[in-house]
Design a protein around this nucleic acid. Structure first.
Lengths: 175, 175
DNA sequence: TCATTTAGTATCGAGTCAAAACTAATGCAA
DNA sequence: TTGCATTAGTTTTGACTCGATACTAAATGA
């Protein structure tokens, strides 16, 4: 898999960053959140983003609230390249397995991931709307129907379906 | 896991190479076989081995039969470092799972590995003594009890238990 | 108001990656 | 036996990752 991740002239980390941006909600679409997701350093991420920018796969915009902040967005080209993501092969292979077998692999890997994260004191990312801070229909407006009680901001439908760096789920099976 | 593989001042590839050398039988303990295992290029492997040599974790010896060849061996230090292999964490985590769950993860990943190898036209490596060319008790001598019918050479007990680049198993479940 | 914190960039040295050019030994064939 | 192709491995180059360190500029807070 490491090997496959050198496809299309990108490096493994560049693929990871591209995937991240595609799936992160807009609070999480910045260099800082990506740094925490990748578990690396700000400097490295800055360079990776610079490389992706040169390849015209992403764009950097100024953040609205914070003039230091950078908002990351995929370009059309970036979105298109993700259709040839080498990781899709894994997905397709898994989909060819019988449902029960696939399920047990997924469960096993999920457990492994959480154990590894705990040991490395990393933070799991998760879908916004599964979060303890998510308040359905708490936003009021049509375009921003939901609400985040942690950040105290209304949420769009898209934000709710994407990954968030602040996501917190009540964890079962902790030991 | 990618992240964890930067432990102990080594890079992911250096760990892979170290592990490989530790588990390969002596026909396979050379730069060429490692290149094929890693699915990369000779040049890259040459540099990685050079780095490991500088760190005194491996040694290069002249090959007996072929004066171009290089025989790779772990140093005592290299062997010792492998006891702190970051991948051992994964092993230990898996061992904490119930047997049935662990088994299904292993089966799933095995399937995934073969599918991926096939797609990338890579060659699976395997244990020498499970090979179609392996002839038990075909060597005659005490120190070299077994025999490889492909390479036409006697095999030591250690060689038989290790991975071989030439390994071929009669595959079930091919589709 | 001024010091601290936070968000991100720039630069450094070690190392990976593929590609290409290289050396030296081995095989093979006329 | 010569001579050429093949094979094993090294070296170099340019783009890039990685952590560490030093930096800039904006935000925060006492």
């Amino acid at each position: 898999m490491h090997n496959a991740a050198y496809a299309e002239g990108l490096k493994p980390t560049q693929w990871e960053a591209l995937r991240y941006i595609a799936r992160a909600n807009h609070f999480s679409r910045n260099p800082g959140a990506l740094t925490s997701y990748l578990g690396t350093t700000k400097g490295t991420v800055s360079q990776t983003l610079h490389a992706l920018e040169r390849k015209q796969l992403i764009e950097k915009h100024a953040s609205k609230n914070d003039r230091r902040g950078v908002q990351l967005e995929l370009t059309a080209e970036g979105r298109k390249l993700l259709e040839r993501d080498p990781l899709l092969t894994v997905e397709r292979t898994l989909e060819r397995q019988p449902r029960s077998e696939r399920q047990s692999v997924e469960d096993g890997l999920q457990t492994l991931l959480h154990a590894l994260l705990e040991e490395r004191s990393g933070k799991p990312f998760g879908i916004c709307k599964n979060c303890t801070h998510f308040k359905r229909e708490g936003g009021g407006e049509e375009e921003w129907p939901h609400f985040c009680q942690l950040l105290q901001v209304p949420l769009s439908r898209e934000d709710s379906d994407d990954n968030c760096i602040e996501q917190e789920t009540p964890r079962k099976n902790r030991h």
